[in-house]
Design a protein around this nucleic acid. Structure first.
Lengths: 136, 136
DNA sequence: GTACAGTTTAGAGCGCGCTCTAATGCAACT
DNA sequence: AGTTGCATTAGAGCGCGCTCTAAACTGTAC
């Protein structure tokens, strides 16, 4: 166990490009990544879990700025657990509201789709009628 | 009825800034907006409905590029109804998948929040124990 | 008449989140 | 020895969707 990974393997496991992994690290969201003798990054399994968590935050549309704040809190240790929880709860709420909004808008779009379907049928009937007139 | 509106009133009714309304028009998403004698934009109620529809598309994260395509189809008349429906259905599917993904990620975040809550309780208990040792 | 608030345009600028480039280096293979 | 392939860095560049600026004009109020 405790496999050590290259940046490519990390990329494959997280879906982030090597470029993006370096970028996240430069921005302070990935502290303490080990290096090989040659200066290459060597990721631990703990790093993998953490980056996978960052990916979840990104997929929830949490801005980089907030992710940096969260990372900073995390690196300050357990005393920041409460504040971290508050951050997560705030975003949880925001995403829930966003999902509601998406749901509403999906319904409106569905209405429009239904309307278009009916229009298409009417056009079809119109065509059929024309054809009948042409070749009786 | 058939009230005519200034750009400010349009802005208020749609939530888009006057800047953005002009931008959308410049990009070809709002064709045939009338002008007053002084060259000021004058929006009709039909314009309002259309812009409100555009806002829904934006809220569903449909890129401007696609909205331009859709607008172009619309201005070509009823013969494009089928293609418009296909576009809407494609985005409908995309948004549904996105909502699923959001739901999954929300669950993971909820798990983390729960975990933090337990940590906070443990810290509380630890503190209480310390206090008892101090002042018995 | 003049200040004020609103409008117009073309075009510049911006914040975000990457994404890519160029120059350099190391390790293994032929 | 040379080629291939992966890594490193600092920093430039990019696509998106606005957002703002500057200069000019108009109608309304005082």
């Amino acid at each position: 166990m405790d496999k050590l990974l290259t940046i490519q393997e990390m990329s494959r496991l997280t879906g982030l490009s090597a470029h993006t992994l370096r970028y996240y690290e430069k921005e302070g969201m990935l502290e303490g990544v080990a290096r090989s003798e040659q200066g290459y990054r060597v990721y631990s399994e703990a790093d993998v879990s953490w980056v996978q968590f960052l990916v979840i935050l990104r997929e929830l549309d949490i801005p980089i700025r907030e992710m940096k704040r969260y990372s900073s809190l995390r690196s300050q240790g357990p005393s920041t657990v409460h504040e971290r929880r508050l951050m997560l709860e705030a975003h949880q709420l925001r995403v829930e509201q966003q999902m509601l909004k998406l749901g509403e808008n999906l319904e409106k779009i569905a209405g429009k789709i239904q309307y278009y379907k009916e229009m298409e049928e009417d056009i079809e009937i119109g065509l059929r009628r024309k054809r009948r007139q042409k070749c009786p």
